[in-house]
Nucleic acid binder design. Structure first.
Length: 493
RNA sequence: GGGCGCGUAGCUCAGUUGGCAGAGCAACAGACUUUUAAUCUGUGGGUCGAAGGUUCGAUUCCUUCCGCGCUCACCA
């Protein structure tokens, strides 16, 4: 019966046969009285009362036994077994169930709940209704869907077949809800700022470029929310945040997707120390709400999330972990030290960049438990205010967990003249060919010239946080539809 | 972008030191009215990722390309 190159032919034939028997294979609705899970939970009462229930779901397994048969339906809450026997249902209905309905189809069942000989809670079907005919076979029940590429390309199948997958995304959803609730409690307003922007900024990255036809103007997909959120601080919205997608036209790997989710928030009148406290409270709350505990492990590595989290200046961290005291070193001395430690650096990079290299090479990976690293060199922190006690440093921190960065925050630069000078430096770098240098943003400068209060701001990579909290090693595992290259025509089935 | 690895039936995987392409599950036909990866009997199903090359002969060897994974570089 199976013709070459047309495996699904059989399913089309069954669909035709169903229609020929006057059955609508795609009806409009079905009244569900009980989700699968609630039948299991209320099983004793339901068996006692013998009240019929109605349940609907996708058939994920089917076993025929002559004039009866078992099947499992999968709905959003779980699986429930149904039992269909010829002497309990209309004979025509039974024949359709037996011959034309198969794994993958959606089915509605009405009947009383009972317990089988082997003890499984089961619905004894009195009425059956085909709710949707499937034209493609699902992956097999035992080994499931393992192929990583297919799991990402056909996430809908992955979600049906691999039970842990839905859990990850439910967790991600709870994570974002938990952040929103926390921010509500802190008096924030959640806002939405433009994704299509005439100028991009707020980070150093290559943007996606697009074009508005009617206006005949180029537009960029945003690479950060920062500059618009700061405009809102100028506008008097003293606590704002946005959870949204940023887009960066860069490489794709285990931890990078071209579009990714960022939380950015800004608070007027506070400095980076306030932000540090808030980030700690936020993370602790999120872990408690989403995972129910502060006991966590990532890839088998236990993480101690118990606050307060250590705070260590970048220079102290290098002193402690690399046993190098870089304070007061000249660029030449730094280059010497880097060279001695096997780091190839260009002295032209400047002190800040070399200090950062030392940090990344000798410190970062060792920060397993949450650790705030503070007071970054000014050269590598163009958007942060200079440190109140040391003008070579900035009031900036990053949060590290398991060797990865989870937050980046500053006391924000709010001096419009200084900001203009920094933009001019970026424009100069751009003129020299730095494709990632920041563009001059006159409207942003105009906003800042009206006056921006002292402000603390922070960005948190939500996908990274989702990876940590769901113990995932690839960002694609926490994105429902991760970006992949074009599917080859030959690969399509 | 560089390096390494992978791509065989709808799914999960074997396999061919170069000689007619294999299994389990799924499907199809039949038996079976409380099964649990149901069982039993039988049947069909393949552009071996794509295109070139070497060869009497390529799914196998070579080259290029496509896709995926890991990794280095860059970034969040």
């Amino acid at each position: 019966m199976n013709s070459p190159n047309d495996f699904n032919r059989q399913r089309h034939d069954k669909l035709d046969e169903i229609r020929a028997r006057g059955i609508d294979p795609y009806p409009v609705r079905y009244d569900v009285s009980h989700p699968a899970q609630s039948i299991l939970e209320q099983a004793e009462d339901l068996i006692e009362s013998a009240e019929p229930v109605t349940v609907a779901g996708r058939i994920v397994s089917k076993r025929g036994h002559g004039k009866s048969g078992f099947a499992h339906l999968l709905d959003r809450t779980g699986r429930i077994q149904i039992y269909v026997r010829l002497d309990r249902v209309d004979s025509g209905e039974y024949e359709i169930y037996d011959e034309l309905i198969e794994v993958g189809d959606f089915l509605g069942v009405r009947g009383a709940v009972f317990r089988t000989r082997t003890g499984e809670i089961t619905v004894m079907a009195d009425e059956l209704k085909l709710l949707s005919k499937s034209l493609r076979a699902l992956p097999e029940k035992w080994h499931g869907l393992r192929d990583i590429e297919t799991r990402y390309r056909q996430r809908y199948v992955d979600l049906i077949i691999n039970p842990g997958v839905k859990e990850v995304f439910l967790k991600r959803s709870r994570l974002i809800r938990s952040i929103q609730q926390f921010m509500d409690g802190e008096g924030f307003v959640e806002v939405e700022t433009p994704i299509l922007q005439p100028l991009y900024g707020g980070a150093l990255a290559r943007p996606f470029k697009t074009h508005h036809q009617a206006l005949d103007m180029p537009l960029f997909m945003r690479i950060a929310d920062e500059l618009y959120l700061k405009r809102l601080i100028v506008g008097g919205m003293e606590r704002v945040y946005e959870i949204g997608h940023d887009f960066r036209n860069e490489g794709i790997d285990r931890t990078h997707n071209p579009e990714f989710t960022m939380l950015e928030f800004y608070i007027a009148y506070v400095d980076y120390r306030y932000i540090m406290d808030l980030v700690e409270r936020l993370f602790v709350r999120v872990f408690q709400e989403v995972n129910g505990t502060l006991d966590h492990a990532y890839q088998g590595q236990p993480i101690d999330l118990t606050p307060p989290w250590p705070r260590l200046s970048m220079l102290d961290a290098i002193r402690e972990y690399a046993e190098i005291d870089v304070s007061g070193m000249t660029a030449g001395e730094l280059a010497q030290v880097c060279g001695d430690r096997g780091l190839e650096v260009n002295v032209e990079l400047g002190r800040g960049k070399m200090i950062d290299e030392l940090f990344e090479r000798f410190v970062q990976d060792r920060l397993v438990n949450p650790t705030f690293i503070t007071d970054y060199p000014v050269e590598i922190s163009p958007l942060a205010k200079r440190h109140r006690e040391n003008p070579e440093l900035t009031e900036r921190f990053e949060l590290f967990i398991c060797g990865s960065e989870f937050a980046n925050a500053f006391s924000e630069l709010n001096d419009p003249l200084d900001q203009r000078r920094r933009f001019e430096e970026q424009v100069e770098m751009q003129r020299r060919g730095d494709g990632e240098a920041h563009a001059m943003d006159e409207d942003f400068l105009r906003a800042m010239e009206y006056g921006m209060p002292p402000t603390g701001g922070c960005g948190v990579g939500i996908d990274r946080l989702a990876m940590l909290i769901t113990d995932s090693t690839n960002i694609k595992d926490v994105l429902l539809f991760p970006h992949l290259r074009r599917e080859s025509p030959d690969g399509a089935t």
